[in-house]
């Protein structure tokens, strides 16, 4: 953490100006999502463990093969249980993490390990209770965020990428890779595009593929299964979007830590954000 402290010292030397960066609606929805997504992920993995295979199409092939991923425990040649993950027909030994996990003397034979599920033990009923509670919270928060962001201009100003954001994307990627951050009022091109993908593509996709798995919603909205290519394909997409969101989360945390965690965290709690002198004086914002 020494470098972060050094950075704060440098920040003070630069005598940066603080501005109000995140609106109240942005901050509240951010933290509700953080909690909801945490529970949705861990309860989702609990639900996945009840049938740890993914397929393409309407149904699950038992007498035919339309599987794209399966995570199983199998008996190895030495007689010990091994975790076997099969992705697109390619088997991978994942003993210790997927399929078979936990301490040697107390092995758990489940797809995702106990530390990645709620509850930690196998309980599909409770996994579903948790998942659907937070699914409602997640969807309601999304609807509120969308309405608020339309009204307060957050969507247009900060999320929807402009032509120049897209044109400047390669430069923006290079800046991020070099951990060079410009602290200004607006998001840079890469931020805008990432947030637009997460908020306007992945979040709605998660809700829609989730609803596509509901037999009730299938009767109400039959075209849902059609657009996703079947209920089991929707389940597979739901899983892939989960992986993308986990990837986004990892990079998001990395960027917050690299860009100055105290300033970034404060801007998402109080809304106050310290910006570069250059940006404060109306210089170029990136």
């Amino acid at each position: 953490m020494a470098t972060a402290i050094d950075k704060q010292k440098r920040d003070i030397n630069l005598q940066r100006t603080t501005i109000r960066r995140h609106g109240l609606a942005t901050r509240i929805t951010h933290w509700i999502w953080a909690v909801a997504l945490f529970f949705l992920l861990l309860s989702g993995l609990q639900i996945f463990n009840a049938h740890p295979s993914l397929y393409i199409g309407e149904q699950s092939g038992f007498a035919f093969d339309n599987s794209v991923l399966s995570i199983r425990a199998v008996r190895g040649t030495d007689g010990n249980a091994e975790g076997l993950t099969t992705l697109l027909g390619r088997p991978v030994d994942t003993t210790g993490l997927l399929g078979v996990s936990g301490p040697e003397e107390d092995r758990a034979y489940q797809a995702f390990p106990a530390w990645l599920t709620v509850p930690s033990y196998h309980d599909l009923a409770t996994g579903r209770v948790v998942h659907f509670f937070f699914a409602w919270l997640f969807a309601a928060t999304f609807a509120s965020w969308f309405a608020a962001s339309l009204i307060n201009g957050h969507l247009r100003r900060d999320i929807l990428p402009t032509f120049s954001d897209i044109r400047g994307l390669p430069g923006s990627v290079v800046e991020h890779l070099r951990f060079r951050f410009h602290h200004g009022r607006s998001y840079n091109g890469l931020q805008k595009i990432s947030y637009a993908i997460v908020l306007l593509l992945l979040f709605p996709l998660m809700v829609l593929t989730g609803l596509t798995m509901s037999p009730g919603m299938n009767a109400a909205v039959p075209w849902l299964t059609e657009i996703f290519g079947g209920r089991q394909t929707a389940r597979t997409i739901h899983f892939v979007v989960m992986l993308l969101l986990v990837g986004f989360f990892a990079i998001h945390i990395l960027m917050v830590l690299a860009a100055g965690p105290i300033n970034e965290l404060r801007s998402m709690v109080t809304g106050r954000y310290r910006i570069d002198q250059e940006a404060a004086e109306g210089g170029p914002e990136r």
């Binding site: 990645l116 509850p119 930690s120 830590l257």
Partner: peptide
């Protein structure tokens, strides 16, 4: 920058085991 990368990666990785969720079993 490299050192900072190592630091942040380390901090990020150290939060992962916190997901261990038997802490929530009681309320569930």
């Amino acid at each position: 920058n490299r050192r900072r990368l190592l630091t942040v990666t380390g901090v990020a990785a150290s939060t992962l085991p916190l997901a261990g969720c038997d802490a929530l079993d009681g309320m569930l």
